[in-house]
Design a protein around this nucleic acid. Structure first.
Length: 276
DNA sequence: CATCAGGCGAGAC
DNA sequence: GTCTCGCCTGAT
């Protein structure tokens, strides 16, 4: 089954490269074909211009992926709300206009962004695949190919720190171990966090070992869809200093600063690569 | 060789 | 409360 829709302000390549989802990758060959493992499922997507081809049933598309890819949101509207006098932000949003803030799984984002700290995207992806292959449930497609689900809190809680080290997680191993225990043993309730507002969710997430303000903001943005969450990493910090010495206009962009943060992050990330 | 990559925890003060 | 320091590992 193939579901075909037309969508503006949607670039599967930009979503993949923007570093919010670590289990999506481009398939070899010509064209824009991507494969994603998320929410216990496997999905292939192809994009031609503004047409998207989801390799799934209509039921799965409507029930799962429409929400996951935030297809109900009008990103053109958000981009148009940017201050036209803010040359930098206008340029950044134009450059990454196909980015969307995905609605990803909370547990997966907690572990993924703990892994992300002091780390680069290539290695983050490798670490996460190591975890999935070692501790995630193995599934098979109809043609026999294997894929792995993201490990449950219980599965990761059973792993020793030494075993986690073997997944190339480095010093983050003990963070993963502790946090998995906290969730598996019910000390932190993920279902409760899903019902909280931004501030309460931040407070609760920061109780987890290895989760500080930056990581908690990433979790809020990419799992809880708190679009006011504004993660400040090394890229954003640099841009705030160079472009917004007088302060970033958070008041103007109340409620969607996090979406704009993604445009800025992506713009700076890609621009940095071009220089080399 | 040093520095850096989507930072954080622990300890000092 | 704020500041500093050490930390796995691979790329440059």
């Amino acid at each position: 089954m193939m579901v075909n829709i037309t969508k503006d302000n949607f670039s599967i390549r930009q979503i993949c490269e923007s570093g919010q989802c670590f289990r999506m990758q481009r398939l070899e060959g010509k064209g824009e074909k991507y494969v994603l493992t998320a929410l216990g499922r496997y999905l292939e997507i192809e994009q031609r211009e503004n047409q998207l081809f989801f390799d799934c049933t209509l039921e799965e598309f409507e029930g799962i992926w429409r929400k996951y890819f935030d297809l109900e949101e009008d990103y053109g509207k958000i981009i148009n709300m940017i201050d036209p006098k803010d040359d930098y932000l206008v340029k950044a949003a134009s450059y990454g206009s196909g980015i969307r803030i995905l609605r990803q799984d909370l547990w997966e984002m907690i572990i993924s962004f703990i892994v992300s700290q002091q780390n680069n995207i290539v290695r983050i992806k490798k670490c996460i695949e190591n975890l999935c292959e070692k501790y995630g449930e193995e599934k098979r497609l109809k043609d026999g190919r294997k894929y792995y689900l993201f490990p449950t809190p219980e599965a990761l809680a059973k792993a020793s720190i030494e075993e986690l080290y073997a997944c190339n997680l480095g010093y983050r191993s003990k963070y993963i171990h502790k946090t998995s225990g906290s969730v598996a043993f019910g000390e932190v309730d993920l279902e409760a966090i899903k019902q909280m507002d931004y501030k309460a969710a931040m407070n609760e997430l920061c109780k987890l070992t290895g989760v500080g303000e930056k990581v908690a903001n990433c979790i809020c943005l990419f799992a809880l869809h708190k679009t006011e969450a504004f993660p400040v990493d090394t890229h954003i910090q640099k841009v705030l200093k160079e472009q917004y010495a007088g302060g970033f206009p958070f008041e103007r962009y109340a409620g969607y600063a996090g979406t704009l943060q993604q445009y800025i992050f992506y713009f700076d990330l890609k621009k940095g690569n071009q220089v080399c």
